[in-house]
C-alpha cells in the first residue's frame, strides 16, 4: 500500500499505542524547488523504522537521526536543509531548494 499523509498519521498513532517512542517530522516551509510540499510527514519510531517522506530521500537520514533525539528528550526541533555545500549538515538537497522541518514527539 502507498502512504498518504493520512495513512502516515494513522501509523504514528498505532505505533504510539503499541508503546513505542514515536516522532513526527513535518515540512513547514519550502523555498525554491522542493521535492515534497508543505504539510508532508515522515514518522519515525524509536527503532528508526519510518514511513512517509519530507524530501525525495535526500535528507531523511538526517531527520531520522534528529528524531531519535527528539524521542529521547521530548523537545521539538526545527531543522533546515538547503543545498549540500551551504549548510552545516552532511546532507542537502541536490535540487537547489531549501526546506524547514518541524520534528516533535508523540506524547
Amino acid at each position: 500500500m502507498l502512504s498518504t499523509d493520512a495513512d502516515i498519521l494513522k501509523t504514528a498513532e498505532a505505533w504510539r499505542r503499541a508503546g513505542k517512542g514515536v516522532a513526527i517530522a513535518t515540512v513547514v516551509e519550502t523555498w525554491g524547488s522542493a521535492p515534497r510540499p508543505v504539510g508532508s510527514h515522515l514518522v519515525i519510531d524509536q527503532d528508526t523504522n519510518f514511513l512517509g517522506s519530507v524530501s525525495g530521500g535526500c535528507v531523511e537520514g538526517a531527520v531520522i537521526t534528529e528524531a531519535s533525539e527528539v524521542i529521547a528528550d521530548g523537545k521539538p526541533r526545527m531543522l533546515e536543509f538547503g543545498v549540500a555545500d551551504e549548510t552545516a549538515w552532511q546532507v542537502g538537497l541536490s535540487c537547489g531548494g531549501r526546506i524547514r522541518i518541524y520534528v516533535e514527539r508523540v506524547d
Binding site: 493520512a6 498519521l9 494513522k10 504510539r16 508523540v106 506524547d107
Partner: peptide, 14 residues
C-alpha cells in the same frame, strides 16, 4: 503532539 490530538485528527479523517 499529544496522542489525543493525533487520534482526533485520524478520527476526523476516517
Amino acid at each position: 503532539m499529544r496522542l489525543d490530538l493525533l487520534s482526533g485528527l485520524n478520527a476526523e479523517q476516517a
